[in-house]
């Protein structure tokens, strides 16, 4: 398992190559990369991401460990950035490996669902005409229900 919380950008391609190179037993690699989305009007200047140092790493590790017990996975990679990001910047990525694709896909979805609502990150959109904290969405919370 590799859990990384960092301010700097990352190269998703390089990360994925390094992540999946080690294990000859895997037959599937699934990855998801999250990108800063501009507003429909193109008014986003900065996406500011705040986090809770210490708890963030602990929460991500706990989520990844739970995924390792639920699915037959080779490995898990989670990278999440904080700080000031611009539209188009990569915010985060998760990747999973497994012998077969079903485990890798499901585990990646599980990681994303939990990471959205249970890892202590908060997004603030700095717009050309003001700023606001991004509100959590009910459907993100509801999405956790399917893993009960």
């Amino acid at each position: 398992m590799r859990i990384v919380v960092q301010e700097a950008g990352f190269d998703a391609g390089q990360e994925l190559t390094r992540f999946s190179a080690a294990d000859p037993g895997i037959g599937a690699i699934v990855s998801f990369t999250g990108v800063v989305r501009d507003t429909a009007e193109g008014t986003l200047d900065v996406m500011q991401i705040e986090h809770y140092p210490g708890m963030t790493e602990a929460a991500l590790t706990k989520i990844a460990q739970e995924a390792m017990t639920r699915w037959a996975l080779g490995d898990i990679l989670v990278i999440h950035r904080f700080g000031r990001l611009a539209p188009g910047d990569q915010i985060m990525m998760v990747a999973t490996t497994s012998a077969h694709r079903k485990d890798a896909f499901e585990a990646a979805e599980y990681l994303m669902d939990y990471l959205k609502s249970r890892a202590p990150f908060w997004k603030k959109e700095i717009l050309r005409d003001g700023a606001h904290w991004v509100a959590a969405r009910d459907e993100d919370e509801d999405a956790l229900g399917r893993w009960d």
Binding site: K116, F121, W122
Partner: peptide, 10 residues
Amino acid sequence: VAFFPPMTGG
């Protein structure tokens, strides 16, 4: 003890 709004990661 930490207080914060619902989290918005991802």
